[in-house]
């Protein structure tokens, strides 16, 4: 189904529709997803038609101009909101509510973490709710806190920590939950640049270590190219896929060297161009249908 187009400027692996794979290979499938909000001022079409697959163990970034329905899409995928049309399949099963195999990290860590619980209790709560036995729970929480570098503050309250550390707690909570798919909704948009770089590397590390599938929503082009194995670019609203781009950077990435690679600059340049096009209202040929 994907229409591979040969590109004149060294970008062979791009498609103007979302990439799909054989059914049994897909961990997460989005099929013909459409979301129309009913408002007092009439219906608003936030997402028109989205189809793409994520293979198990893939790390994909989703970028798009602001207001391109990124959050809407993520809410539909995470089962927090029902799509108007189309469906989301997780490991072949249609998503109709928040699935057990999925964890979400939100942008607003300050509101997503519960201020009435200590760091450890925050991380532990979803496991407790799943009735994971105490020993197992302790092990998972310790490992997760260790993985994000926060073993030293389990008794602190989230609000006693810096923004970056709070987001680490939220990531630890997601990791301890042992999801197969991790959704991240602009998780680093509210932290400072240096913390952000650390957290990006943390995500790469966690992703490699756990072998989970990650869908990372961001509005930051550099971040999407640096993090992803693949970048899905959304058009402006009503949203379709502008382009699905493979990031062929080496698997070992680091802030200094990867970002200074000529290939990084090329890819970054390309994504930037596409976003500018999307902002200007350009839509891929497939969306005209």
């Amino acid at each position: 189904m994907p229409s591979e187009t040969t590109d004149k400027n060294t970008l062979p692996t791009r498609t103007t529709t979302g990439r799909t794979v054989q059914n049994d290979e897909a961990m997460l499938s989005v099929r013909g997803l459409k979301k129309v909000y009913q408002t007092d001022g009439g219906p608003i079409e936030a997402v028109r038609n989205l189809t793409f697959d994520l293979r198990a163990g893939e790390l994909a970034c989703l970028v798009g101009p602001s207001g391109s329905g990124k959050t809407t899409l993520l809410k539909c995928i995470s089962g927090l909101m029902a799509p108007t049309e189309g469906q989301v399949l997780l490991d072949g099963v249609e998503v109709s509510g928040p699935p057990k195999k999925m964890a979400v990290v939100f942008q607003e860590y300050g509101r997503s973490l519960f201020p009435w619980m200590r760091v450890r209790e925050n991380v532990e709560l979803p496991l407790k709710n799943q009735r994971v036995p105490k020993d197992e729970r302790d092990r998972l929480v310790n490992e997760a806190l260790e993985a994000v570098g926060l073993s030293h503050v389990p008794k602190s309250y989230p609000w006693q920590l810096s923004g970056g550390m709070q987001q680490r707690v939220a990531i630890a909570r997601a990791v301890a939950y042992q999801p197969e798919v991790l959704l991240m909704d602009e998780p680093f948009a509210a932290v400072d640049a240096q913390t952000r770089a650390d957290l990006e590397d943390l995500i790469r590390t966690v992703w490699k270590k756990l072998g989970i599938t990650v869908l990372f929503v961001t509005h930051d082009i550099d971040e999407s190219v640096y993090l992803g194995e693949r970048v899905i670019i959304l058009s402006s609203s009503p949203t379709v896929i502008q382009e699905d781009l493979v990031i062929d950077l080496p698997a070992e990435r680091d802030q200094l060297n990867t970002r200074s690679l000529p290939r990084f600059t090329e890819l970054r340049h390309h994504v930037y161009e596409q976003i500018q096009l999307a902002k200007a209202g350009h839509r891929p040929a497939a969306a005209a249908k």
Binding site: K75, S78, G79, L80, P98, K100, M102, A103, V104, F106, S112, L125, P126, N129, Q130, R173, Y177
Partner: peptide, 8 residues
């Protein structure tokens, strides 16, 4: 939403 997404 956090609570819902974690299956509470």
């Amino acid at each position: 939403n956090t609570a819902k997404s974690y299956g509470l």
